[in-house]
Design a protein around this nucleic acid. Sequence first.
RNA 1: GGUCCCGUAGCUCAACUGGAUAGAGCAUCUGCCUUCUAAGCAGACGGUUUCGGGUUCGAGUCCCGACGGGAUCGCCA
Length: 602
Amino acid sequence: MVTVAPQRLDALLQSIAASAFQAAFGSALPAADFSVQKTRREFPGDRTVVCFPLARHSKAAPDATAEQLGKAMTAAEGPVVGYNVVKGFLNLELEKEYWADWLAHAAAEANYGREPAGSAPHVMVEYSSPNTNKPLHLGHLRNNFLGHSVSRILAARGHAVTKVQIINDRGIHICKSMVAWRKFGAGETPESNGIKGDKLVGKYYVAFDQAFKKEVAAMVAAGTEQAVAEKSAPILLEAQETLRLWEQGDTDTVELWKTMNSWVYAGFRDTYATMGVEFDKLYFESDTYLVGKERVLEGVERGVFERGEDGAVWTDLTEDGLDRKLLLRADGTAVYMTQDIGTALLRFQDFPDLDRQVYTVGNEQEYHFKVLFLVLGKLGFAQAQRCHHLSYGMVELPEGKMKSREGTVVDADDLMREMFDIARDIAEEAGKLEGLDEAARQGVFQKVGLSALKYFLLKVDPKKNMMFDPKASIDFYGNTGPFILFNYVRGRSILRKAEAAGTATEASPSMALPGEAEMALVSLLHDLPDVIEEAADTYNPSLVANWCYDLTKGYSSYYQDHPILGAEDPDTRNLRLVLTERFTRTLHAGMHLLGIDLPERM
RNA sequence: GGUCCCGUAGCUCAACUGGAUAGAGCAUCUGCCUUCUAAGCAGACGGUUUCGGGUUCGAGUCCCGACGGGAUCGCCA
């Protein structure tokens, strides 16, 4: 058996190709010039070198170039044992022992696919970042799952990762809920009536809006102009007064603000727990906006920002192809940008080794983040140019955007519960969970239901808008999370049976060599490190999701017509068990990167 | 109007730095459970990759233009 080289296969083949090319044509090319890709199914071989670009240097036709290169590579030291040429494509055949050895050893490593922890710089990933006036909805689910998954993907690439969110706990929106609760709440609390805290506060935010509209309508009926009424309705003035009182630190106002925010946090905590996402540190806007004001004023003193005649502070980004942008109002109060500057600086202060920040925020804020990164650069932060806005598209309904006014907002808690219920219905119908107690069954329903939701939201390229049809709901069959779980469970079931029977699931020296059917799977398993690298470089979990599906599809197909435990001879059984072991473990690693937990049964 | 993103099968989505005959799922139709979990497998059907040019050995992918959809250009967040 050959020993698997420490370098990845494609790099190995590139270097073999480079020296073979020099031997054959006397021309030295960098190894990177040799394009190595997987050989398509319909041709014999494992890897293909595309020879068209080489023809210039070989001064021979692509076919002739491929022919000579193939001959030289086969003759060279290494795993290449044969080749064929099809229209300028050089298909290389690798010795089966190479793959058997890879399967037995490299793929067996506990950290297969991952870089050592701490081998890459410290990155902060922000996600979720809700307002405290409304419960979490479907859009937040996409945001949370994306951010959480990207943190895990970066960690797999060796980055130290700190997961954070910024909670928008300050401003006119929460004051509106406070005013409405005082007027209409009659002392209602989450404890007094059993409503989740975030739902309760959301209810008063809606109540405010209704009362506001009623007042405006009455004023218009009495002869006031619509625009005037919308700015002077008494309940709105009351909310604005509440905000002023809050900024002055008025005791009663601050107390109520604290109370109502604490209800919301408690509600959010429940939702995050159900979703299976977590954070290392929370930032609150009420703590960071003042920092932003200070730093903006410092920037004025250092001459990187300008103060207008009215006292407002601006930054001029016309040289960067953008506009002039307000950083502080004339009255000295903060705008959105001010607090984001404060938050960013506070984070660099909290974690001095931070290499960059990744912000998981919808694509409607692309302009905002362009400005933010430029401003951070102006303030002297070199990390600013490595910061990244993980921008994602909207989740749309068949009739368009979600609109709270039309009651089309898909609530996160409701949707997750619905997923669990469907998982329960299907499982009970199939009757496969007999013998498990209710708690264990519930655990399975949650894993299956969440897998459906997470996979659905993560398999789509983040930058694209995506469609969610509540009527069609989320599927549990086909290209779905439950399909992946199902095959994992089948594999695990076989491995448990083998272990119970005392049959080895690790490679024996006489393990059969992988044939064509096995190679399809081996090749997919081999892709994992490249997939993780690409996903990390592009902050794109959908690449991992699609790989998980392809791998699973491959196993499912293999499973169908290759008996594992009932294989025709012990060495073949050994190979199939090792393959099953690698499938389950590698898939587990991939699904972990998506934040999806796998059950043992379903 | 300026800038950015998207446009692939009836529907929802794939396609690594430009590579061979563009792939899955859903839907429709046909087979396959006394055999390791049928939430499965195999097959059929389905495409001028919105349109028109260009670059090159080769374009869904890159460039230019049109068309369609979305976002943004607030002292809102």
